[in-house]
């Protein structure tokens, strides 16, 4: 198992290096000059331009810039924003909990609904439930995130007035930040109605962000279960006279989980990508909105640093999923290599 872990770990190194290169190159190939944007409508004089370019290091050869960037990152220095002059890592850490809270909520919904729905659809294959679910999941999967978010706002916020339109909590509440998760901090603060307010702010973005993962999880669970249910060992379990619940919930599902876990892991990347749109629509102060704003400002340091931090999280999550996979699947646990 340890050997397996080391193998998986070593494969992340080239991935990480590749990401630094892409992050570095991506923002630089975008048209637009950060110094000109910084200067605003009045513009900058050639002398001032030269001064700023030297200050930011843009006048050096591109490969030197990349080398410095890489070395800085490896020593944990992500630079500072051109615009706010704050260290990128501080800005990131200040916004990250909001995104994590939103992603957790979205993934929680996606798994809570998608997994059982997929299992039931597989067991009752061909039933009206199966057809309805597959139709719904196709719709959910195909629907653009921003459009779904807007539709939800129109229905639940404008027409029904059940939920607030944007933000993380009503402005009438104020309390100390402990975890950075608004719902949990609201609970800790003990203020009446605070938790309820935080939750009602969270629910629509979570649904918006969770819809695609939910659809994917439901479909993949269904197909994994369908495949597993026709396996010989499921027939053996039935021949043993076990209860239906045990046959489906334990013997079949445990095997289907091997595929489903991988799919869930892949959805983490989708979630972080989807967070950009969702956070923008709901004015959710997370890293998605932060990244988008920084791209518009051509804030090189923030964009490349943020990209790397986000990618690192995806890498860590995928590594964790690989390990989980090894725990679930004994055939992997015991092979070396």
């Amino acid at each position: 198992m340890f050997q397996y872990f080391l193998n998986k770990l070593s494969t992340t190194i080239p991935t990480f290096l590749g990401i630094t290169l892409i992050a570095f190159a991506f923002i630089r190939v975008l048209p637009g000059d950060p110094i000109m944007l910084l200067g605003g409508e009045r513009g900058v004089t050639p002398e001032r331009y030269q001064e700023l370019a030297t200050q930011f290091g843009f006048d050096r050869p591109i490969y030197i810039q990349y080398k410095d960037f890489l070395l800085n990152i490896l020593s944990g220095d992500f630079g500072q924003s051109f615009v706010t002059k704050q260290p990128v890592i501080d800005e990131f850490l200040a916004r990250f909990p909001a995104t994590v809270e939103l992603s957790f909520a979205a993934m929680f919904l996606a798994i809570l609904l998608g997994l059982p729905a997929g299992i039931v659809a597989a067991v009752k294959r061909g039933s009206w439930f199966d057809h309805t679910l597959m139709g719904l999941s196709l719709t959910g999967y195909s629907m653009p995130v921003f459009w779904l978010g807007l539709l939800l706002i129109i229905l639940f916020s404008s027409i029904l007035g059940w939920t607030p339109v944007s933000g993380r909590i009503s402005l009438m509440y104020y309390f100390d930040i402990h975890t950075g998760f608004m719902t949990i901090d609201a609970l800790i603060s003990g203020q009446k109605g605070a938790f309820r307010s935080a939750l009602s702010h969270l629910i629509l973005p979570a649904i918006t962000l969770g819809t695609i993962p939910m659809a994917v999880i439901a479909r993949q669970t269904r197909s994994a279960m369908l495949e597993v249910l026709s396996e010989d060992y499921v027939r053996t379990a039935r021949a043993k006279g076990l209860s239906t619940f045990r046959i489906i919930g334990l013997h079949a599902f445990r095997n289907a989980l091997i595929t489903v876990i991988t799919v869930i892991g892949l959805q983490v990347g989708v979630l972080l990508a989807g967070a950009i749109l969702t956070e923008t629509i709901f004015a959710w102060p997370g890293i998605g909105k932060w990244m988008l704003d920084s791209i518009f400002r051509r804030d090189y340091q923030v964009v490349q640093g943020g990209l790397i931090l986000i990618s690192s999280i995806v890498i860590v999550v995928n590594l964790t999923i690989d390990l989980l996979y090894g725990l679930i699947n004994p055939r992997i646990r015991q092979t070396r290599g």
Partner: peptide
Amino acid sequence: RRRVAGKDMAMIFQEPMTSLNPCF
């Protein structure tokens, strides 16, 4: 009927390698 299968009558199959659950 499920209480009869596995207890009063039992069955073994053609493919032993796939008839046991790989996860347990």
